[in-house]
Write a protein that binds this DNA or RNA. Structure first.
Lengths: 215, 215, 215, 215
DNA sequence: AGCTAATCGAGACGGTACGTCTAGTCTTGCG
DNA sequence: CGCAAGACTAGACGTACCGTCTCGATTAGCT
């Protein structure tokens, strides 16, 4: 049986120093050239202290970025919901495009994705603590749209999210094309065309929604 | 100026041995634990012979798999074109799903993707020699569908391909959901809904196409 | 500034293993074919542990043989002093000849000399820890002989030692002639002839020495 | 049976280029860091051309320096013989001391000695072509002194030469003391004391020599 | 003068070892 | 006992040379 360290005695000072050092070093030398040794040296920490609390380099880096996003006031997040799905989605997608263009964002996130692809355990962590909440917020907005009759009521929301985001994400990840606001808009438009309710599936909810608009 | 080796004197025997060893070792130990040293040892080759002809581990592995697919009689490829776009696409997408489920395929391709994400030069090689021809075949099939009036004539084919494949690819790469034939079918259906021609956009080309059929 | 390792934390187990392995390998494959890598492997030690504590292959081998000779109870040594200088020197020189004839001695010492010729720093180490004490013992015996009036009182002892040993050493090092007991004797005889006191240089010390004997 | 190259077809141009390159490189980087590859590159010659004609790095360097000394008009040499042995020897020994002090002489000769110590075959070459003639000249001068009654008639000339030169050579090789003209003189004096004829061995030749002086 | 076989420059090859780097473990005091 | 520090085993890195082995392209010396 493996000896388990006692988390109660963990040094918060060391933990912070390690996460900060990891963040800095990822920006400076890139993820591939990042070494545990360098993190320990920069943090003024023994290597064992890192190995004691994290299973892998990827886990440290993941934690380093989680610490950033979790430091915000609330952990939950919501997407804009003005009632105009197309406008709302375009705002969100254009924001995503802008975020991907930020060079400070580039390196670390690309690195994290690399690790996640090859390490299912890390991927689970990532989904649970970073991607999950975001995905749920997106799903919530789509559900709202379904209630408003702007989206097929029987649409598979997982598939819908993939349809909307995967093209964008793939273009960024593999640099397979330009990421522009126009592209974001085009994606939203084609997504809405794919997901709009069929004419013969109009429900009362949709009827009343239509009446509200025309009225 | 760096000294360039003379390709005319290159040993074909060594090249084959290296590519074969790389393929075997990627399957056996995985890409992350693959070392140039091990490839050289397995291939019965000096390390310098690898460093002389390839710039990186990723390049060797890429070549190893390119060698496989390029060994076919012709390099060009075509997708089925029965005239029924939906059926044709479902066949292709189901085949892709099946291919992704093959465990022998899993490791190496996942590894290659990892490298491609972080190495733009490698990515260019990959696109030019492996992904490019496949993409072109897909584009050709969609163009055929446009001529047949089954797809919007003004559709952006790059965006269309992303819409069709990115969801599938992302699901596989990040293991974010099950890859089933049903999923393949669903993707095709939603894709066709997004990409079908608008009723008020019928063109002469499409009219004549219809006439040919009915005639 | 270069990082200096802390000798207090040095592993005695590893040090011994390295010196032993070095000794064995020098005997087995010779100094020229001796590699740091082989020493590390034989000693069950990481290469870095050798590079951390020794600056060169020669330094390791020197230490390996120093460790042998320094393992004796005391580091000081004395030469026989029966009062008969000629007899005493012949004993010592014949012993030296015999030692040089030992094949186990041959390789390593020849190798060490090779390194010492080209590496002044190593030479200093060698003289301080191995050759020095021996030289001092020889000098002490000659001084005793001077007090006994058997050697010129004003003789340069450094020159004297060179006269006695350099011919023997050169013959061995360059294999320029046979090393026999007779050669040893001849060397002693010619040395004594060169170094004996002149008749007109008798001093009080020598007179009193003579008186002691006759008294 | 090994294929022997035909010396008649040997390229003199290449031979000279190799020897020159070897000489230059020994001076520039030292013998230890001298590589066959570097010689070949500097000489503008294929490596095989070196391996074809020389068995080892040491052999090339030896040849490089032999070529220098053998380029003189005559291969034989004689030492000064004024009839005054002490004066003649002091001239020769002081010249030797001066030669050893020349830094251009230092590196290559030290290197050659290193190789000769470890390679008996090379040592034989060296003795036959470089050291031999010099030794013979020295022996000739000593024989002349024996005829003049200045040296014991039954003296072992090999031993005598060692007595005279080995101390000097050793001091230089191992840097074990200062090499000064005074040291040269002292060596000659002690050598003459050791080698002078015994009083009861006076011959007619010596008698007549004495008469000449006193007369 | 032309033929032909050996030598030539060039450099790729299978290897060995280098000296450096990092991984992950183990050890030694300090607090 | 957790910690900083850092030495330890292990082994891959990318480089430098080794000595052998093709390649064409000169060169001889012989016919």
């Amino acid at each position: 049986m493996v000896k388990q360290p006692n988390p109660a005695r963990r040094s918060e000072r060391s933990r912070q120093a390690i996460l900060t050092a990891a963040r800095e070093l990822v920006s400076e030398v890139g993820y591939a050239k990042l070494s545990i040794e360098a993190i320990a040296a920069r943090a003024g920490v023994g290597k064992q202290t890192i190995y004691r609390w994290w299973p892998s380099k990827g886990a440290v880096v993941l934690d380093a970025f989680l610490a950033l996003s979790e430091s915000g006031p609330e952990d939950s997040m919501t997407l804009p919901d003005t009632g105009d799905l197309e406008a709302d989605l375009k705002v969100v997608m254009r924001a995503t495009v802008a975020e991907f263009a930020d060079p400070a964002f580039e390196g670390p996130i690309r690195a994290l994705n690399t690790e996640i692809i090859n390490d299912p355990a890390l991927a689970a962590q990532y989904r649970a603590r970073l991607a999950g909440p975001v995905e749920e917020a997106k799903r919530a907005r789509l559900r709202s749209a379904q209630r408003a009759g702007q989206l097929a009521a029987d649409a598979d929301l997982d598939l819908a999210l993939e349809l909307l985001y995967a093209p964008l994400y793939q273009r960024w990840l593999f640099r397979s094309g330009p990421l522009t606001p126009a592209y974001a808009d085009a994606l939203v438009e084609v997504f809405l065309k794919a997901m709009r309710p069929d004419v013969d599936q109009l429900t009362d909810a949709q009827d009343s929604a239509k009446l509200e608009k025309s009225g």
